Amino acid sequence: MGKKIKLIEPTKGHISKAERLDREAMREELFEYPDLNTQPPTFLTGEALNEWNRVVPLLKSDIPISELDYSLIVSYCVAVGTIIECQNHIKDNGAMLKDGKSNPAVRLQSQAMKDMRMLANSLGMSLDSRMKLAFNKSKEKPKDAFESLMLDD
Rank of each mutant, 00 (worst) to 15 (best):
Asp115Pro: 01
Val80Asn: 01
Met26Arg: 14
Glu67Thr: 12
Ser16Lys: 03
Lys3His: 12
Thr82Tyr: 00
Asn121Pro: 02
Met26Trp: 14
Pro64Phe: 06
Lys141Asn: 06
Ser71His: 10
Met118Ser: 14
Met118Glu: 14
Gly124Thr: 11
Asp153Met: 03
Asn136Gln: 05
Ser102Lys: 11
Gly124Val: 08
Ile90Gln: 03
Lys98Glu: 14
Ser66Asn: 07
Asp115Gln: 09
Asp144Leu: 14
Asp128Leu: 06
Lys139Arg: 14
Lys3Arg: 15
Ala79Phe: 00
Asn121Gln: 11
Ser129Gly: 09
Ile15Gln: 09
Asp128Asn: 08
Cys86Asn: 07
Ser126Cys: 05
Ala95Met: 15
Gly2Lys: 11
Cys86Lys: 01
Leu149Pro: 04
Met118Ala: 15
Val55His: 04
Ser102Ala: 10
Asp99Cys: 03
Lys132Leu: 13
Gly13Arg: 04
Gly81Asn: 02
Ser102Gln: 12
Leu30Ala: 10
Asn121Trp: 08
Ser110Trp: 10
Asn50Gly: 05
Ser75Asn: 10
Leu58Ile: 13
Ala79Cys: 05
Ile84Asp: 00
Lys141Thr: 10
His89Asp: 12
Thr82Arg: 01
Pro40Arg: 06
Ser16Pro: 01
Lys132Asn: 07
Asn37Ala: 06
Ile73Lys: 03
Ser75Ile: 00
Gly81Gln: 01
Leu149Asn: 11
Met131Glu: 13
Asn93Leu: 05
Met116Ser: 13
Pro40Met: 05
Leu72Tyr: 05
His89Ser: 11
Lys60Arg: 15
Ser138Pro: 01
Ser148His: 14
Glu51Gln: 11
Ser66Glu: 07
Gly81Asp: 02
Lys6Tyr: 09
Phe43Leu: 06
Met150Gln: 14
Glu47Tyr: 02
Leu49Ile: 04
Ser122Arg: 15
Thr38Phe: 07
Asp153Asn: 11
Leu44Pro: 13
Lys143Glu: 15
Cys77Val: 01
Asp152Ala: 13
Met113Leu: 09
Met96Glu: 10
Cys77Tyr: 02
Lys12Trp: 04
Ala95Glu: 13
Pro104Arg: 06
Glu147Gly: 09
Ala145Phe: 12
Pro64Leu: 07
Lys114Ile: 07
Glu24Lys: 10
Ser75Tyr: 00
Pro10Asp: 06
Ser16Trp: 01
Asp115Glu: 11
Ala18Gly: 10
Thr45Lys: 15
Tyr76His: 10
Leu108Gln: 07
Gly94Trp: 04
Leu21Phe: 08
Ala112Pro: 01
Val55Asn: 05
Glu47Cys: 02
Thr42Trp: 04
Ser61Ile: 09
Met131Tyr: 08
Ser126Ile: 10
Thr82His: 00
Gly2Leu: 09
Ala95Phe: 08
Asp144Trp: 13
Glu29Lys: 11
Asp115Thr: 03
His14Ala: 10
Arg23Gln: 09
Arg117Gly: 08
Val78Lys: 02
His14Cys: 02
Pro34Asp: 13
Ile90Phe: 02
Trp52Asp: 00
Glu51Val: 01
Val55Cys: 09
Ala105Trp: 01
Ile15His: 05
Glu29Ala: 12
Gly2Val: 07
Asp99Trp: 04
Glu85Gly: 01
Val74Cys: 00
Asp99Lys: 05
Ser138Gly: 03
Ala145Glu: 15
His89Asn: 15
Ile8Gly: 11
Ser71Ala: 12
Lys143Met: 14
Leu36Ala: 08
Asp35Ser: 13
Ala18Cys: 04
Ser66Pro: 06
Gln39Leu: 08
Tyr76Ser: 02
Thr45Cys: 03
Ile83Gln: 02
